[in-house]
């Protein structure tokens, strides 16, 4: 595969042109389980046609306007900031409206270690979010406690709230997190996550 080099005169960061998701070798990665058996809706009768299409439109809208609530506590929150800032720029996917009020957010990104002392807070904030709501656990600490097998650290936030996407890494790179958001978006648009 030819790689197109992109010159970046003002930066030491090299970059290359990739391929759109679902086109190149990443296709295998983005494929989700159950995709082959997915109901495309083509065989539905006229009576359900409208509601199915409406569902698709709603899911499309939801997937493209994921307003994140960063529950950032530690190092991962800094990488979340990197993702929001100009170099990665999550606003290209309609997710730039960072809301610190749970009432206005769709997607909770738990970035950083959750310790026992803050666990009730996390639960409260999750409960306050309106449906439909999604949760991404970012980084080793949020997903499993990481290397803090310790007396004050929650061993994975699935002890407290349901999780839709797990992002390994300590901390994950901003593009790794972006990949998770894209994957979640794809899943929502397909209607694989139904809430509310």
């Amino acid at each position: 595969m030819p790689v197109q080099k992109i010159d970046t005169p003002n930066s030491i960061i090299p970059r290359k042109a990739g391929v759109a998701p679902g086109e190149g070798p990443e296709k295998g990665l983005i494929t989700l389980p159950g995709e082959a058996a997915r109901d495309t809706g083509d065989d539905l009768g006229g009576a359900t046609y409208l509601t199915t299409k409406l569902d698709q439109v709603v899911n499309w809208a939801r997937g493209n306007s994921l307003w994140p609530l960063p529950f950032g506590t530690a190092c991962c929150a800094i990488e979340f900031m990197s993702m929001v800032s100009s170099h990665y720029d999550i606003s290209r996917f309609g997710a730039e409206v960072v809301r610190f009020s749970p009432r206005q957010a769709d997607l909770m990104i738990v970035a950083g270690t959750i310790v026992d002392k803050i666990a009730p807070v996390l639960k409260t904030i999750y409960d306050q979010m309106p449906e439909p709501k999604y949760v991404i656990a970012m980084g080793a600490c949020a997903t499993s406690g990481g290397f803090y097998r310790a007396y004050h650290v929650v061993q994975g936030i699935d002890e407290i709230v349901p999780v839709d996407m797990w992002v390994p890494g300590c901390p994950p790179t901003p593009d790794g997190l972006m990949y998770a958001i894209l994957k979640l978006k794809e899943k929502i648009e397909r209607g694989e996550i139904r809430r509310g």
Partner: peptide
């Protein structure tokens, strides 16, 4: 536009 710092992930990927 070409000199913008933003990396258009996933079309353009940062090379680590």
């Amino acid at each position: 536009i070409k000199g913008l710092p933003t990396i258009s992930y996933p079309e353009v990927k940062r090379v680590y």
